[in-house]
C-alpha cells in the first residue's frame, strides 16, 4: 500500500514537473520545429511571422507583417502558457487566424517545441536579427 502511494506521488510529481516545464527538451523541439518550416523562420518573416523575439511579444505586432484581423485583435501576449494553448489548436484559440493548422496535439511535443522557441530566441541568429 505504501509502495502504491509512493508511486502515485512520484507520478503526480512528474506530471507537475512536466506542467511547469521541467523535462522539456529543446533538441527534440528543434526537430518538431521542422514541421513549421513551410511558413515560418526564426529570423525573418515568411508566410508566417518570424519567431525571434516571440516571448513577451504581443500577438499581431511584428511591424510590416500582414496579420489577420483576428490575430491583431486577439489580445494575446506570447509566453509558454499562451503558446501552448495556441499551438494545441490555432483555429479554436484564435478563430479567423490564417494559421490553418490542426495543431500539435501531444502536450510533450508542444512543451519541447516551446522550449526550442525559447532557447532559439536567445541564439546568435536571433541576436543578429534584432
Amino acid at each position: 500500500m505504501k509502495a502504491a502511494r509512493a508511486l502515485a506521488l512520484v507520478a503526480l510529481a512528474s506530471a507537475a514537473a512536466i506542467a511547469h516545464g521541467a523535462g522539456r527538451d529543446p533538441r527534440r523541439g528543434e526537430e518538431i520545429y521542422s514541421r513549421c518550416l513551410a511558413c515560418h523562420a526564426l529570423a525573418y518573416d515568411r508566410t508566417g511571422p518570424r519567431h525571434c523575439g516571440l516571448f513577451g511579444r504581443r500577438a499581431g505586432s511584428v511591424a510590416g507583417f500582414a496579420y489577420s484581423d483576428a490575430m491583431k485583435r486577439s489580445n494575446i501576449a506570447w509566453n509558454a502558457k499562451t503558446l501552448d494553448r495556441f499551438i494545441a489548436d490555432p483555429l479554436k484559440t484564435v478563430p479567423g487566424t490564417t494559421m490553418g493548422y490542426a495543431g500539435v496535439k501531444d502536450a510533450r511535443e508542444r512543451g519541447d517545441l516551446i522550449a526550442y522557441l525559447e532557447s532559439a530566441g536567445k541564439s546568435e541568429e536571433c541576436r543578429k536579427a534584432r
Binding site: S34, R35, C36, L37, A38, G100, Y101, A102, G103
Partner: peptide, 17 residues
Amino acid sequence: ASLEKGAVSAYLGAIPV
C-alpha cells in the same frame, strides 16, 4: 528539403481542418 518537409507537415495539419 527543409521547405518540402515543412510543406508536408503544413498540408498534413491543414487536411483535418
